[in-house]
Amino acid sequence: MMIVARVQPAAFDIGVEQCALTDGRTDIGAVVSFTGWVRDFNERPDVTALTLEHFPGMTEAALHAIAQEASARWPLQGVTIIHRVGRLEPGEAIVLAMAASAHRHAAFEACDFIMDTLKTRAPFWKKEHTESGSYWVSERQSDRDAADRWEHS
């Protein structure tokens, strides 16, 4: 199982990451990837930018642990998780989750699991900037519910 778990300010290239995941492998039958993007509306309608803070050290370990957990639940050949930090503007990609498996169902489910788990367990915090000021984003019950369903499956 190959795990890539990175936290970085720089943009990522999904093509490059997918090549790195599959390079030299002939046993991978499916790669599912999710890319999260910054939107211009959230808690307020005019988001101009957001700032991502994290807890260095713990964040990388948490992403690694999430990848390990996914590989314990599904037969995976590789997992890539990349999360950006710092200042980001609407239209920029913020997070990438990628799962490789022999078959598509495992890859789809693992990717879904990784994102649900990341949203409730990885130490990242978003501050949104708008014309009318800046504020820390609140947690969402829907994210907690989404993560909870994996506890019972």
Binding site: G36, L52, H54, F55, M58, A61, H83, I94, V95, M115, L118, K119, T120, R121, A122, P123, F124, W125, K126, W136, V137, S138, E139, D143
Partner: peptide, 24 residues
């Protein structure tokens, strides 16, 4: 590592308090 109120601590430990996470 995420911990609860009952987690035992030792001298030299590093503890962090933070609000619910909102990444992704």
């Amino acid at each position: 590592a995420m911990s609860q109120d009952g987690a035992a601590i030792a001298p030299g430990d590093e503890i962090a308090f933070f609000p619910p996470v909102t990444g992704g």
